[in-house]
Nucleic acid binder design. Structure first.
Lengths: 186, 186, 186, 186
DNA sequence: CACTAAACGAGACGGTACGTCGAGTCTTGGA
DNA sequence: TCCAAGACTCGACGTACCGTCTCGTTTAGTG
């Protein structure tokens, strides 16, 4: 099957070059495949990369059990940050970059990557609300953005590192913001 | 001066097309200028756009006086969000996108745009710390990211709108997280 | 039978496009046939066209009786010219064009189309020689070329039209050249 | 100048391959030139070949002085046939072939190659008419076709060789057809 | 009458070339 | 002397067909 060869070639090439420089002709050559075959199956470069990325690279990082919702979030955040901090983070960043010029890329990225993760995070937060740990009238979407937004910000703008200190302090502050205790004193 | 004609042409063209599609040949034609002249003055497309953007477009949005630091942040956040939500937001997003493939673009963007804004925000937060409004041991950089990160996240990933509700709730939650009161009950 | 569908599709397509533009994929689609089936039966495009052309289109124009050989030639020339002057002429021209790059096409064309016609013309001329109408030592092949060459020349090069005046004057001059004495003294 | 390199490369390549197989990419590579440069100056392959052919290859074969018009034609015919019989003949044949699918090619060919030659031949014939050697009411265009048509016919259809016998007998017969009286009856 | 083998449609596949676009460099002619 | 104008090489784009090659699926012909 050509599909597999193409995705593997893409992964191989992404280790050496950026998505921007990654020509479709390059993938075709590396995979030993005709360009037409690629265009038959994918509408654009980013779609290939997203497929390649998520079929072969991404570990399906999920939330693990934890005593409190805040604790679960904390652990997940550390794990996600580790991923974003490496080569995979660079790839995701470039997919988002590509998406700024092509809304379908962004949509594809959201549906392949973001949706599940945000849904999972949403469940944890909902559980926290139900247990009285988090604010009752919390906007869940906003809560998720509060936790993960700063990570993406640093990943994409690069003004500060995605280091261990950040990985630990950020979710602590963010979960504090949405906890009931804080609301009582507000 | 050719420089001015080029920047003006760039601004004019950016109203009609994306940074990605904006060819240097296009700018040269629009400005009535030789391509070589452009290359003499700027290393790449994004540099032109950043110059054009910040010389002619961006209003130097600053913090206004407010009774509390939280209040000042709140107002500034609303104002920034309005900018990001329009055409200028799309341009900034595309500059950041360009930056994913070229670190110098990102660095140029940070030094031209981000640095001052973050410094200004930092001063407000520092004032809040000094007045006892915010946590004494606060990591200022992280505090700034907590406030603005979610905005950039939504701007760049587009999973949720940058609407009025978001503009008001986000800074409230974020400043709550860094306020002393919350720390006391934690 | 697929063969018939293919030839009919070819004829149909040739009414709309040139042989050059006639893709085998096109024929396959139009005929509702797999490409492999076409390749099973014909070595190349021109072979299909020649078959299609001679099975379905060409009327087997033959010489009719006439009082003199010159007269027979005259009538046949007029009839042939009429054929060459229309769509069929264009197709033949394109077959010959195709033949410039593939000798087998040319050979196939000669054996399918030219041979019989030249043989028939040769018989008439031979009869004219035998009857003393034409020169005794006449090179028959050359005589045929003298009569038909100018027609093909105009068909293929298009510098002058294949009109009625040409159709009548050409064979008169040509047969005069090969007659023992000139007919009209002009 | 790129133009020269392109034409030279074309000539070089035509010694190894047919016009049909001659890809523009090939010419560009051989000439060390960008494809765009070729497209800037020529509308299609055949136009390049025609230019290349007539700038660098074709000797400007002209009529030489001769005692009679028939004699002048005879000599010129032999010379032309020599040219058509070799590699140059193959190239011209392929240009005409190309022309069957693109009228502009044919027109370009006529204006670059045919026009002058036919005009020169026309002058000789006119001189023959004026001197009383040829028929007074002769259609000159047709006369030219009568002489050269058979050559092109053989060149393009290949049913008979363009040999010495043909080269000598053809113009003799053809000029006889247009003479006021037959010379020798041979 | 069932079974097999061929011929078949559909279309994926690796290729080659197409004609276009823009990048970034280099040359020229007029102001 | 400077610079617009634009020619130049280069490389990738996305498309069109090429001719080859599986795939099932008809469809005959034979056993």
């Amino acid at each position: 099957m050509a599909r597999k060869a193409i995705l593997e070639a893409t992964v191989r090439l992404l280790e050496r070059m950026t998505l921007q420089n990654l020509a479709i002709e390059c993938i075709a050559r590396e995979a030993g495949v005709g360009k037409a075959t690629i265009y038959r199956w994918w509408p654009n470069k980013a779609a290939i990369v997203i497929d390649a990325f998520f079929e072969e690279v991404v570990p399906r990082t999920t939330f693990e059990k934890a005593p409190t919702a805040a604790e679960a979030i904390q652990r997940q955040a550390v794990r996600i940050m580790k991923v974003l901090n490496g080569r995979q983070g660079r790839i995701v960043a470039q997919i988002i970059a590509e998406g700024q010029n092509d809304p379908t890329v962004l949509e594809y990225f959201r549906s392949m990557f973001l949706r599940q993760r945000r849904a999972a995070a949403g469940e944890i937060i909902q559980a926290g609300i139900d247990s009285g740990e988090f604010l009752a009238d919390l906007d869940i979407e906003l809560a998720i953005d509060l936790i993960y937004g700063p990570m993406w910000y640093r990943l994409l703008v690069g003004h500060q590192p995605l280091d261990r200190a950040f990985a630990e302090t950020l979710p602590r502050l963010a979960t504090a913001a949405i906890s009931r205790q804080k609301h009582a004193t507000d």
